[in-house]
């Protein structure tokens, strides 16, 4: 019994050391500009010019920032967002606004992009361009930098959640899990999420991942570590049950 116990411990420690090799502080970039209003700019869509407030007055927005010439993160980002949105089975109303941050993009180019992702027929998705991208970038804390050698923008894969009052309530940086999107959708619909983790890479044994679809926290690997003492004790007790007794001693 003791052998299996030490084996468990060795396994736990070993898997920790092997699997975790990044250096870890927390990133605060997703916190920037939260609870600030988004710039109420005019955007050009397939149905003509509208302002952002026309959109968020009706329903909250998930804003995805891309450009058509992008050879980097934009395509995986769009696929990631599309896939994650498709997986949501929530009743909340919201629109996904895919906005170009490249002033040389045209609306027809954006619509072609929509077609490529089979999103041109989807009423939930809006593809648009704008003349006032600097104002928008400043309001959401997005800083693309033009690199003339590669003819590309250096930029983050940014998704911004905007609530019905036009306030930025949550941002997601990088390609993210479905649960992050559910959290985002809850927040843009003004549901209070009591606490949230900051992005970090090297934490194998976190206890919970918040699952807003059910309003509960999903148990993740760390929770198993928490249960380990009880499980091991049950094993120990099972081992104890095999002890030979001498009742008449």
């Amino acid at each position: 019994m003791r052998k299996s116990f030490f084996f468990f411990i060795a396994l736990v420690v070993f898997s920790n050391v092997v699997l975790c090799n990044t250096n870890g502080l927390y990133s605060f970039s997703e916190e920037e500009k939260l609870f600030k209003p988004i710039a109420n700019i005019e955007i050009a869509t397939a149905e003509g010019e509208i302002s952002l407030s026309d959109l968020y007055d009706k329903s909250p927005i998930i804003l995805v920032l891309v450009f058509t010439r992008c050879t980097g993160i934009c395509s995986p980002l769009l696929s990631n967002v599309k896939e994650n949105i498709r997986q949501q089975q929530t009743n909340e109303k919201y629109k996904v606004l895919v906005l170009s941050f490249d002033s040389s993009d045209s609306i027809s180019g954006m619509l072609q992009l929509a077609k490529r992702y089979n999103l041109d027929e989807d009423k939930q998705w809006i593809f648009a361009t704008t003349d006032r991208i600097e104002a928008l970038n400043a309001s959401v804390g997005f800083n693309p930098v033009w690199d003339s050698t590669s003819q590309q923008f250096d930029h983050e894969a940014l998704v911004v959640g905007v609530n019905g009052n036009g306030y930025i309530v949550k941002k997601l940086n990088g390609l993210r899990a479905s649960s992050d999107f559910r959290s985002l959708i809850k927040e843009i619909n003004s549901e209070f999420v009591l606490s949230y983790p900051l992005p970090r890479k090297n934490m194998l044994f976190s206890c919970f991942t918040y699952d807003p679809a059910t309003g509960k926290k999903k148990i993740s690997v760390g929770m198993l570590v928490m249960l380990l003492p009880v499980v091991l004790t049950l094993l120990v007790v099972a081992g104890l049950a095999t002890i030979k007794r001498k009742p008449n001693e």
Binding site: F28, S29, F35, K36, S190, L194
Partner: peptide, 30 residues
Amino acid sequence: YFLFSNETPAKVVYVNAQQFAYMMSYKSID
């Protein structure tokens, strides 16, 4: 946990604690 959960806060204060002080800001703290 249930306090004012249905209301929109009029003001948000970001607090980053560190040994041995608080950084507070109306904006997220970079």
